[in-house]
Design a protein around this nucleic acid. Sequence first.
RNA 1: GGACCGGUAGCUCAGUUGGAUAGAGCAUCAGCCUUCUAAGCUGAGGGUCAUUGGUUCGAAUCCAAUCCGGUUCACCA
Length: 583
Amino acid sequence: MSIVNTIQQSVIESLTGLFNQPFTEKDFQVNETKPEFEGDYAVVMFSLVKSLKLSPDAIGTQLGEKLTADHPELFTSFNIIKGFLNLTISDSYWRGLLQQHHLDICYGKKALNGKKVMVEYSSPNTNKPLHLGHLRNIFLGWSVAEIMKANGFEVVKSCILNDRGIHICKSMIAWQLFANGATPASTHIKGDHLVGDYYVRFNDEYKKQVAELMAAGQTKEAAEKEAPIMKGTQQMLLDWEEGKPEVMELWSTMNGWVYEGFDTTYKIIGADFDKIYYESNTYLLGKDIVQQGLEKGVFFKKEDGSTWIDLTADGLDEKIVQRKDGTSVYITQDIGLALLKYEQYKIDQSIYVIGNEQNYHIKVLQLICKKLGMPNAENIYHLSYGMVELTTGKMKGREGTVVDADDIVEEMISTSQKHTEELGKVKDFNADELKELYNTIGLGAMKFYLLRVDPKKTMVFNPAESIDFHGFTGPFVQYTHARIRSILRKETVNGESSMVNVELDVTSTPLLKLEKNVIVLLEQYPLALEQACNEHNPSVVANYVFNLAKTFNSFYSEHSIANAESPEKKQLRLQLAGMTANT
RNA sequence: GGACCGGUAGCUCAGUUGGAUAGAGCAUCAGCCUUCUAAGCUGAGGGUCAUUGGUUCGAAUCCAAUCCGGUUCACCA
């Protein structure tokens, strides 16, 4: 039972004893006492005033006296300020709680609840490398998946690769025309970047050809249609759809390069997937569904033969689900994939991590699924997130203002290395440990930076600021839930408990203050996880982590300066900083 | 124009089911290094919580209206 629950129960007991009527935890509120007042937790009296017909202070005095009398092991004193009953918790109770958390192997984790969730995230195109926006997507998706896991869900992390279509053909044709057979191996360029370079090359060439045709007297519209490279691209798409061998071979070769590049990036940033869907396999899905929908009367055909759904009754528009030539559109594929996911995994909830520019699209998707009577329609959840903008404005591919994911990752890691080396406190680390340390700090800072903002909000990325490691937070951002547990678990690993060391060492007030702050934060941790799980919002956990880091940091910087450091304390400090002590 | 989302310190953002004098980091200013964490600490300044009205013991938080900003409303994906 958490400390707040314990206090609630005691208050209910005491109130019942005092006033001879039943109470529930909803009749009053227990908050943390603000630091400027004396006490640890505050019971808010106002809500009791009406039913008891007494002044807040009168209730507070009676309640405070009864609580301290009935539970001397829990409450040592109380005071009343403006209707708030502040209670001071005994030191021994704090220590007991810390010990209890410390001994709980499953701290912060819930038992399996038998429910299965799929989280689809990242979902890139295979014609260019990942950028900063993908990183926000990936960190959100991955974190939500891990938070769901900690809350007892079985989680399938999935990804749909948009590996076909006209945009893929663009980089293919540019490669054919200009690459002279260049490969990642021959150029030492990461595969996704190499392919991305030819996508850029396509656009340059296309622009050039359009300009030439316009100079020759064509209208802009005609020039855009007639440009040879565009015609070639369209032909290539047709060839691909027919399965022409040399096109298929080029396609799979180039996609292979991209996948290799993506995998490298995913590995560095710690993203992983349980199931990969390929659009080239799924884009034909949904055709049967269109037929069924027509029979059910959910869809209707227009004179030209295209198939539509009328959503005006739901406040939306008419939406096409199949072209007049019988090919399926984006939304049709998505309906098919939604059903496929359900049939393959029997998932209870399907989470889509997709940017907020697709809010309308997902709304339509869900509505169509519902109208078709699909079993999973209600359980589609769109984890919508805002764009990442730069201080100079929006990221625009054509203007070259896109922040490349690999670049920023590398920059964060090398900055963390630079800072750490300047401080020269890693003499005992071997090469592998150093590498891990720099990665942890650099990536931790970046993850925190991108996750601390409410997902649905547009956020601004300031390179200087993120590299500043957000003040002191950098070294501590690795306090993800898993990390906190492993820190608390050091006992079983090393045979000696860091937290027990603290406890045995406690003689001074600052240490006790640290303990209280840590316990309060640890107490909030499962709640933060649960809230983050319910709202699919990892920023809750990120902010929790931030507070915990701050607590640790302010304490250890203060005391490492003021006091000589014992070997035990050094060990503990290093553990808390997430570093491996080599002593 | 319709739909959805946002507006909190100079900047970037927090702010639990409505609770005490609205917080943090960065930036600014004033202090703190005879080096075992200055990636830091102590302190200060900085706010009409977009505006107005409502709900009540009590509103940044809930409701309504208005203003400003963003996204979206394709036989693109």
